[in-house]
Design a protein around this nucleic acid. Structure first.
Lengths: 181, 181
DNA sequence: TGTCACATGTAACCGGTTACATGATTGA
DNA sequence: TCAATCATGTAACCGGTTACATGTGACA
């Protein structure tokens, strides 16, 4: 149950509507916690009921009203409480591993192509993250506070994607080497 | 929805009861797809209804009956179908990233200690995986077929844990360097 | 005496996914 | 004209988590 807290973090940086949050998630906290707009809308309503955030309706011309949320005192308290609380380290969860494990029970060529596809997709994400790093954090040694934390989260995304790409490459090499035995 | 297929893979290697599968998961497919015994029991029943597996009740002395499942023809077909089907590459999903991102909104020291704790936990898993590698796959170059696939899945687990440990270490270094400014 | 391994289950809950709906504006 | 962007929502579903329950045998 971290979406609440991910939203509190995002709203602490800057207030915004559900729609804005959904887009912001795609390129920051989303590296570690993806969310769809439906889910964000629902959780924001729940958080409003709980008094963690305050809603302000903003009328717009030609567009639907915007519901801008900002963090309330109770939300700040809840976030601080959660930050100090330990969470379980996660385990990998990727169907590709299951497919590879079962490859000999089906079309091995199809599984190989699937691994290549995932490798390319993760390589594309890696490049996207690296370009964010170049653009937003050219001098990482000078960072501190919130900016340093943002940088380190991005580093986590880069490391994870890199390691996935490397693994896929290892798998492809090994399967190609044994394939045409 | 991969637990069905993960179970089909596991049962294709060897038939077994829900209890046995739960334990096997802890040290093989579990690297990529963890599951609790409750969930396994439920899914096995559903799979039996669908005709993917066949159940045989085995009476035991002093212990409850064992329900041993084996893969049926329909299960083999379903597994082959699923293996050839593409899946979405996954995104990281780890609360630790959210906590780090929000560290300046709470007790930064607590977040740092949490990162250290996760680093140690992932390092322990890494060592466990490496010892499996040494014991079960001393000569990886000689592998092929199912054994090669098993080895490559283990390699994925090792790479993921290693990259997580490295990231945590980077975070700890950076936070310690700025901490006592 | 107490805990661990064996073995399976019910029930409630909740977080996340998917499909579908609405409606205006902007730009290719 | 078509797609994309802005902006929010309902509804159904489903996979996974957590808590609790039961009962024996082996071992420290």
């Amino acid at each position: 149950m971290a979406l609440e807290h991910a939203l509190l973090v995002a709203l602490s940086e800057r207030s915004g509507s559900g729609y804005e949050l959904a887009r912001r998630f795609d390129r920051s906290i989303g590296f570690f916690w993806a969310a769809t707009h439906q889910q964000i809308y629902r959780v924001l309503r729940r958080m409003e009921e709980a008094g963690w955030v305050v809603r302000t309706d903003v009328a717009q011309e030609g567009r639907p009203d915007k519901k801008v949320y900002q963090v309330a005192a109770a939300g700040r308290d809840e976030l601080a409480r959660w930050l100090a609380e330990p969470v379980q380290p996660t385990t990998l969860r990727d169907e590709l591993g299951v497919k590879l494990r079962g490859a000999s029970l089906g079309d091995e060529g199809a599984v190989l192509r699937e691994v290549e596809r995932h490798r390319d997709e993760h390589a594309a994400r890696l490049e996207a993250y690296k370009s964010i790093q170049r653009r937003d954090f050219p001098k990482p040694d000078a960072l501190n506070g919130r900016e340093l934390h943002q940088y380190l989260v991005l580093r986590g995304g880069i490391r994870a994607e890199q390691s996935f790409v490397d693994w896929c490459a290892e798998v492809v090499d090994a399967l190609r080497a044994e394939g045409p035995r």
